[in-house]
C-alpha cells in the first residue's frame, strides 16, 4: 500500500502549494480591510478600485512593454545561439554556453547592482530600457535551455532535404525550420515574458522613476489599507497567467494533432 501513502502525501503537498496562493483570491473578495479570519462578507469593491488606479495601470503598461521586448529579444538571441551550438561544430562551444548561462548561477541582486554601476559609469539614465537589458540577462539562459532541447530533437537532414528539393536557405527557414521550431519558440516567448513580468529585484535597481508592476506592488505592500486591492490585482494576474498557460498547452496539442489536408 505504498502507492496509497504516496498518493496521500502528494495530495498534502498540493495543498501546501495551493493554500497560501488561494488566500489571494479569497481575501480579494472579502469585505474587510484586514486580512484575517473570519471572513466578513463578499465584495467586489477592491476590483473596482483597480479600475480607477492610474499608477497601477501605468505600471502594468510598463511591465507589459518590458516583458514583450525582453521576450522577443531574449528569444531571438536564444534562437541563434541554440542553433549555433547544436548544429555547428564550434571549438569552445561548451565554454561559451557556460558563459551565457552564468546568470543562472549569480544572485539577481549582483546582476542588478553591477548593471547599475555600468550605467552610472557610462552616464546612461535609468529607464525601462535598462530594465530590459537586466531582464535579458536572466531570460536568455532560460530561452537557450528551452530551444537547445528543441533543436536537439531536430533532424538536420530535414533542412538539407528542403534544399535538395529546390528551396533556398530563406525559404527553407520559412517552410521547414520555423514551423518545426514554433512550439519551442512559443514556449521560450511565454517563459521569458512571464519571468520578466514577474521580476522585481533587478528592475528595482534599474527602473529609475518608471515603476514596473512588481515595483508598484512592492510599494503598496507597506500600506495596510492598500492590501486588499493588491490581492485583487494578484488574483487577476494569477487567473490570466493560468489561462495563458492552458491556452498555450491546448495550442501545442492542437498543433500536433491538426489534420493537414493536402493542397
Amino acid at each position: 500500500m505504498k502507492n496509497r501513502a504516496l498518493f496521500i502525501y502528494a495530495l498534502g503537498y498540493l495543498a501546501f502549494l495551493y493554500v497560501p496562493v488561494l488566500f489571494l483570491p479569497i481575501f480579494s473578495f472579502n469585505n474587510s480591510q484586514f486580512i484575517a479570519f473570519p471572513l466578513t462578507g463578499f465584495t467586489t469593491r477592491w476590483y473596482a478600485g483597480l479600475g480607477a488606479d492610474a499608477a497601477m495601470q501605468h505600471a502594468l503598461g510598463n511591465s507589459l512593454k518590458v516583458g514583450l521586448v525582453t521576450a522577443l529579444l531574449s528569444t531571438m538571441l536564444g534562437l541563434t545561439a541554440a542553433k549555433a551550438v547544436t548544429q555547428y561544430r564550434l571549438r569552445g562551444a561548451a565554454a561559451m554556453l557556460g558563459f551565457i548561462s552564468l546568470p543562472l548561477f549569480i544572485p539577481d541582486i549582483v546582476l542588478g547592482i553591477s548593471l547599475l554601476l555600468l550605467l552610472g559609469l557610462l552616464n546612461l539614465p535609468l529607464s525601462l530600457a535598462s530594465v530590459v537589458v537586466g531582464h535579458m540577462l536572466v531570460c536568455v539562459p532560460f530561452s537557450i535551455t528551452v530551444l537547445i532541447a528543441r533543436f536537439e530533437g531536430f533532424d538536420r537532414n530535414l533542412e538539407e532535404a528542403s534544399a535538395d528539393l529546390g528551396e533556398s536557405g530563406w525559404m527553407t527557414f520559412w517552410r521547414v525550420t520555423a514551423p518545426l521550431m514554433m512550439p519551442g519558440i512559443l514556449a521560450s516567448l511565454l517563459l521569458t515574458f512571464i519571468t520578466s513580468f514577474d521580476e522585481f529585484l533587478v528592475a528595482y535597481f534599474l527602473s529609475g522613476t518608471e515603476a514596473t508592476l512588481p515595483i508598484y506592488i512592492w510599494g503598496q505592500l507597506r500600506f495596510p489599507e492598500r492590501l486588499p486591492t493588491v490581492l485583487a490585482l494578484g488574483a487577476i494576474i494569477l487567473t490570466v497567467s493560468v489561462a495563458l498557460v492552458i491556452a498555450a498547452e491546448m495550442l501545442r496539442n492542437l498543433g500536433v494533432k491538426k489534420p493537414m489536408v493536402g493542397a
Partner: peptide, 13 residues
C-alpha cells in the same frame, strides 16, 4: 517533413 502530410511532402519541391 513531420509537420506536413504525405501529399504536402511530395508537393514540397
Amino acid at each position: 517533413f513531420p509537420h506536413l502530410n504525405v501529399f504536402d511532402n511530395i508537393a514540397y519541391g
